[in-house]
Design a protein around this nucleic acid. Structure first.
Lengths: 107, 107
DNA sequence: TCCCATACCTAGACTCTCTAGGTATGGGAC
DNA sequence: GTCCCATACCTAGAGAGTCTAGGTATGGGA
């Protein structure tokens, strides 16, 4: 595992980014890179399998679009995806609060 | 991987807890459980290998103590451990800020 | 016509943490 | 006095998640 790891929050990042509007894989990578302040640099090999898994789980839906040039697969959040996003946001808040609790006691 | 995962922050949690004073394995588990607001429940099978790894890396030092009854292995932060802790705290702050950045844009 | 950027995909490897076992000791119950 | 349980430590192996390193296809500019 390389050093730009997302520590188990990949699904959260993808769902959250799709919450801002449908997008294709490459665009999601750019979106997350930008919004993270260039701190998160996802790889294609991480993103595409994760999107396929989310689609299999019914959290996102995809359609093929050939707008400009090459083929593109555009993903959008489903109803279940919105619910899952909300759940994962809560989970993240709980986890980061827990870590802050442990850190805060010491330093 | 079970569902109480610490998402790659196990070393941070252990080092940070040891920053509050030396302790043995079981005590660390209890300390982290308490300070996380009961949200993080580490398993022995996670903690002991992690402590051994940190000791091999020179971040912690251990000594055997048979205070009350059974044997106990008491761990303490080394100088290198303090430095590593500071580094990991910074890493965590950067990462959680990055996630907040991605989340904040959407919801 | 060739090359490069965009865009997508997959297999395999690697790391991390958990599960599920195991050992040893001391104290209380019966 | 013996049994059982809580405390305390340990390890091998499994499983999940993400990355590396490859590959394919298309369109546009040199």
């Amino acid at each position: 595992m390389g050093r730009s790891s997302v520590n188990g929050q990949l699904d959260l990042l993808l769902l959250s980014s799709l919450g801002a509007g449908e997008a294709h894989g490459y665009a999601l990578i750019a979106r997350i890179h930008e919004r993270s302040g260039a701190r998160i640099e996802l790889q294609e090999g991480s993103v595409y399998p994760a999107l396929h898994k989310l689609e299999a789980a019914g959290c996102v839906a995809s359609r093929w679009a050939d707008d400009d040039g090459g083929r593109r697969r555009v993903y959008a959040l489903t109803g279940a995806g919105h619910a899952e996003l909300a759940r994962k946001v809560e989970e993240w808040r709980g986890f980061s609060a827990a870590v802050r609790g442990v850190l805060g006691a010491a330093s």
